[in-house]
Amino acid sequence: MNLARGTVHAHLAKIEKLGVMRLSSTRLLPSALGRTISAMVRAEVDQHRIGEAINALGAVPEVVECFAPAGDTDLMMRVVATDPDDLYRVSEAIRLCPGIQRTSTSVFLRQVIPYRVVQLLDAPASGSRNQQPTLANPG
């Protein structure tokens, strides 16, 4: 491909600035760090304290993602743990965060489709009102 290292780094920096690239740390597998258990934790939150809850959840290292979904669940987190006892500890750390009223945990038995986005590069974003920055020419 004959691209200079500086050119590649400059293009990557521009793409990162656009906010369309994940952090490099998301490429690490939690299992490689000893966290072989993965689970989804749903939380019911006191709506007056949702900001406090989110801030406290951000301090729990095992919470690797957190979403605010539509429906009955206020927050949904993907968490990792070393074993069932550790998952219990993580679940308790979440439950004790300010504003968290109730939690429910579902353990993932195995991953059947890994995180992927390459297939989206060729798929049209039909019906999308919010156009994302294009990667065709990051310069």
Score class of each variant (00 low, 15 high):
residue 33 L to Q: 12
residue 128 S to Y: 08
residue 113 I to P: 01
residue 133 P to W: 10
residue 56 A to G: 06
residue 60 V to L: 02
residue 39 A to H: 03
residue 6 G to A: 15
residue 42 R to I: 02
residue 105 T to Q: 03
residue 91 S to Y: 00
residue 16 E to G: 05
residue 57 L to F: 05
residue 36 T to E: 10
residue 72 D to A: 14
residue 29 L to W: 05
residue 55 N to M: 09
residue 23 L to P: 13
residue 135 L to D: 02
residue 56 A to W: 04
residue 82 T to M: 07
residue 58 G to M: 09
residue 10 A to D: 15
residue 131 Q to M: 06
residue 50 I to W: 05
residue 12 L to I: 09
residue 51 G to P: 00
residue 40 M to W: 04
residue 88 Y to W: 10
residue 93 A to Y: 01
residue 118 V to I: 13
residue 111 Q to R: 08
residue 94 I to P: 00
residue 59 A to I: 01
residue 74 D to I: 08
residue 61 P to G: 02
residue 119 Q to V: 06
residue 24 S to K: 13
residue 14 K to T: 10
residue 131 Q to H: 11
residue 111 Q to P: 00
residue 25 S to F: 13
residue 123 A to L: 15
residue 121 L to T: 04
residue 22 R to V: 10
residue 31 S to C: 05
residue 106 S to P: 00
residue 2 N to S: 12
residue 50 I to S: 09
residue 17 K to E: 15
residue 11 H to M: 14
residue 108 F to E: 04
residue 77 M to D: 01
residue 75 L to I: 09
residue 8 V to Y: 08
residue 114 P to W: 00
residue 73 T to D: 13
residue 104 S to I: 01
residue 134 T to V: 04
residue 67 F to K: 06
residue 36 T to V: 15
residue 62 E to T: 00
residue 96 L to K: 14
residue 70 A to H: 08
residue 112 V to Y: 10
residue 36 T to L: 02
residue 47 Q to W: 12
residue 14 K to P: 01
residue 87 L to K: 03
residue 54 I to L: 10
residue 106 S to C: 03
residue 31 S to V: 12
residue 59 A to Q: 14
residue 107 V to R: 08
residue 16 E to Y: 11
residue 36 T to D: 04
residue 139 G to M: 02
residue 127 G to M: 10
residue 19 G to Q: 12
residue 121 L to I: 04
residue 11 H to D: 09
residue 43 A to W: 01
residue 65 E to N: 08
residue 62 E to G: 00
residue 134 T to L: 10
residue 75 L to W: 11
residue 58 G to I: 11
residue 41 V to G: 01
residue 78 R to C: 07
residue 106 S to W: 04
residue 96 L to Q: 13
residue 46 D to R: 09
residue 76 M to D: 02
residue 131 Q to K: 13
residue 138 P to N: 08
residue 65 E to S: 12
residue 44 E to M: 10
residue 102 R to H: 13
residue 81 A to C: 05
residue 124 P to M: 11
residue 6 G to E: 15
residue 23 L to N: 14
residue 126 S to K: 08
residue 117 V to T: 14
residue 47 Q to E: 12
residue 86 D to A: 11
residue 18 L to F: 12
residue 56 A to C: 06
residue 46 D to F: 04
residue 26 T to S: 12
residue 106 S to R: 09
residue 62 E to R: 01
residue 90 V to S: 03
residue 139 G to Q: 03
residue 114 P to L: 00
residue 29 L to Y: 06
residue 121 L to V: 10
residue 19 G to Y: 09
residue 8 V to P: 11
residue 116 R to D: 13
residue 101 Q to H: 06
residue 100 I to G: 02
residue 15 I to V: 15
residue 17 K to M: 05
residue 105 T to E: 04
residue 55 N to Q: 09
residue 57 L to T: 04
residue 88 Y to A: 13
residue 134 T to R: 10
residue 100 I to Q: 00
residue 17 K to N: 07
residue 16 E to M: 07
residue 15 I to L: 15
residue 75 L to R: 07
residue 116 R to I: 03
residue 123 A to W: 10
residue 122 D to V: 14
residue 73 T to L: 05
residue 34 G to D: 07
